[in-house]
């Protein structure tokens, strides 16, 4: 009798799970999860309404130190495709995949799109030692700061989605091509606007702007962090401030989630300008997509450098 009741209860639970699995995770759209809001934005450009896309890391938090939540585990568990930046940008990526236990992303690469393929990496370390701080074993992973790399990312996403969903392959490729065309026009405009600041000496908070400054011809003369990921010390700041004065650096580039106190102190001592830039769509809130995000970065930097240069913004 008890066995019969248990069997009925088990069958009911199975039915419940099956029904809701079907309703919630309907097959009409691909469930795509991207590790960052920026990747989600580019994926949206490529796939438009063919996918249901969600981003994991909040744009307001440091991507290296993001702590995945139960909601993220839930998202990855039910996702069809996982898009990530590869390398070791998202140190939390593997623990998240392990926690979600979605077999698609554990045994097969088909459903896991690594957008770093084909990117020319900078700052590849020749030796690995934590004496050099929080260095990245495969090279600097902040490549999304160079809009030329965003074109590669869009193409990688289109290829990856086409692999999973061959019926819409042409649609994804066309959208990626359109996005890259619009980006080309913007890059031309941004390069023209930044042409007057070639070689301008700048300071960055973290080594997260290497690709950006290379693209736009700026020269990094120092970093607020003594080594990547190591909080600044008084001794390092004294040296940095002297470097800023000697090399006539104009601007400190930092991200919104980085503390303001130290850059402000440096600014007070040296007269350098502090400008908040971002590599995450949604921070600031009006950076709705990659193009507007980078456009805002250029405008802010142009303004800051221009003010220093001519004295008037």
């Amino acid at each position: 009798m008890h066995t019969k009741k248990a069997s009925i209860a088990f069958a009911l639970v199975l039915s419940f799970l099956s029904v809701f699995s079907g309703v919630l995770f309907g097959a009409e759209k691909l469930n795509v999860v991207a590790t960052t809001t920026t990747l989600a934005s580019i994926a949206r450009e490529v796939a438009q309404d063919k996918i249901r896309i969600e981003a994991i890391a909040s744009p307001k938090q440091n991507i290296h130190h993001y702590a995945p939540t139960p909601k993220d585990v839930f998202r990855v568990k039910r996702a069809d495709v996982f898009i990530h930046e590869g390398l070791d940008l998202e140190a939390w990526r593997q623990p998240l995949l392990d926690a979600a236990g979605n077999p698609r992303f554990l045994g097969e690469e088909k459903y896991s799109i690594d957008v770093s393929r084909g990117i020319l990496l900078l700052e590849i370390p020749t030796t690995l030692s934590r004496a050099e701080g929080d260095i990245h074993a495969f090279g600097n992973p902040h490549y999304i700061g160079d809009p030329e790399n965003a074109k590669i990312i869009a193409s990688n996403i289109a290829d990856g989605l086409a692999n999973v969903d061959p019926e819409n392959a042409a649609f994804y490729q066309k959208n990626a091509s359109d996005f890259n065309g619009r980006l080309d026009a913007k890059i031309k405009d941004w390069e023209t606007r930044m042409a007057g600041f070639q070689g301008a000496p700048v300071v960055t908070y973290h080594r997260s702007w290497s690709y950006f400054v290379k693209r736009f011809g700026l020269s990094v003369v120092g970093e607020v962090e003594p080594k990547p990921g190591i909080p600044p010390t008084a001794k390092h700041l004294a040296v940095l401030m002297q470097q800023i004065k000697d090399k006539k650096a104009k601007v400190i580039i930092k991200e919104y989630f980085e503390e303001n106190r130290t850059p402000k102190k440096i600014a007070e001592e040296t007269g350098v300008r502090v400008v908040n830039l971002s590599q995450a769509v949604g921070e600031p809130e009006n950076a709705k997509d990659y193009l507007s995000l980078m456009g805002q970065n250029i405008s802010l930097l142009e303004g800051a450098l221009g003010e220093q240069k001519g004295g008037v913004l």
């Binding site: 419940f16 799970l17 809701f20 699995s21 309703v23 919630l24 995770f25 939540t69 139960p70 909601k71 585990v73 839930f74 568990k77 039910r78």
Partner: peptide, 12 residues
């Protein structure tokens, strides 16, 4: 496991 639910809530 996560329990599927109509409110799209993560319930583990």
């Amino acid at each position: 496991n996560n329990i599927p639910n109509p409110w799209d809530l993560p319930i583990e």
